Simulated assay, not measured.
Amino acid sequence: MKRLLYSKKAAPYLFVLPFVITLLVFWAVPIGRSFVMSFQELLYGQASFIGLRNYERMLGDRVFWQAVGNSFRYMCSRWSCSFRSRWCSPRSSTPRSEATASRTCSRRRCSSPL
Results as ranks from 00 to 15, higher is better:
1 M>H: 02
12 P>D: 01
70 N>W: 09
10 A>Q: 09
110 C>I: 05
27 W>S: 09
111 S>L: 15
100 T>Y: 07
51 G>C: 08
84 R>T: 01
108 R>G: 00
19 F>I: 14
26 F>S: 05
86 R>V: 04
6 Y>E: 14
76 C>E: 03
52 L>W: 12
114 L>K: 08
58 M>E: 10
43 L>T: 11
19 F>T: 13
27 W>A: 06
49 F>R: 07
99 A>Q: 12
62 R>E: 13
86 R>E: 05
22 T>S: 10
19 F>P: 05
83 F>W: 09
30 P>Y: 13
50 I>Q: 07
90 P>H: 10
68 V>T: 00
79 W>L: 08
43 L>M: 09
108 R>I: 02
89 S>D: 15
45 G>I: 11
73 R>Y: 11
83 F>V: 09
14 L>Q: 01
82 S>L: 12
35 F>N: 15
65 W>H: 10
106 S>A: 08
4 L>P: 00
15 F>G: 14
56 E>Q: 15
29 V>W: 15
75 M>R: 07
54 N>M: 06
33 R>D: 10
58 M>V: 11
105 C>I: 05
111 S>K: 12
114 L>S: 09
46 Q>T: 15
40 Q>M: 15
16 V>P: 00
86 R>P: 00
57 R>F: 05
59 L>F: 10
10 A>W: 11
71 S>L: 13
96 R>F: 01
69 G>L: 13
82 S>M: 05
2 K>V: 07
26 F>A: 02
105 C>N: 10
8 K>G: 09
82 S>K: 15
87 W>F: 10
64 F>K: 02
108 R>T: 02
53 R>G: 00
9 K>V: 14
78 R>Y: 04
55 Y>F: 07
41 E>Q: 05
88 C>I: 08
79 W>D: 01
78 R>S: 06
21 I>V: 13
102 S>Q: 12
37 M>H: 12
36 V>H: 00
38 S>R: 00
4 L>E: 04
45 G>Q: 06
82 S>Q: 06
17 L>F: 10
69 G>M: 05
64 F>R: 01
63 V>M: 07
31 I>H: 07
6 Y>I: 07
92 S>C: 05
15 F>E: 08
48 S>K: 14
14 L>T: 02
74 Y>L: 15
47 A>Q: 13
44 Y>G: 01
9 K>Q: 08
30 P>F: 04
100 T>D: 11
28 A>K: 12
61 D>S: 08
8 K>R: 06
23 L>M: 12
109 R>P: 00
40 Q>S: 02
67 A>T: 11
9 K>D: 01
33 R>L: 15
91 R>S: 02
113 P>F: 02
63 V>E: 07
2 K>F: 09
109 R>L: 03
19 F>G: 15
35 F>P: 03
33 R>Q: 12
18 P>N: 13
3 R>N: 03
20 V>Y: 08
18 P>G: 10
20 V>W: 05
93 S>T: 04
41 E>R: 10
38 S>G: 04
52 L>T: 09
59 L>H: 01
104 T>W: 14
69 G>W: 09
61 D>V: 00
19 F>L: 15
36 V>Y: 04
24 L>G: 13
39 F>V: 02
71 S>M: 10
75 M>D: 05
31 I>V: 14
72 F>H: 02
24 L>I: 05
58 M>H: 06
31 I>C: 11
67 A>R: 13
57 R>H: 07
12 P>M: 06
40 Q>Y: 03
33 R>E: 14
81 C>N: 06
73 R>C: 04
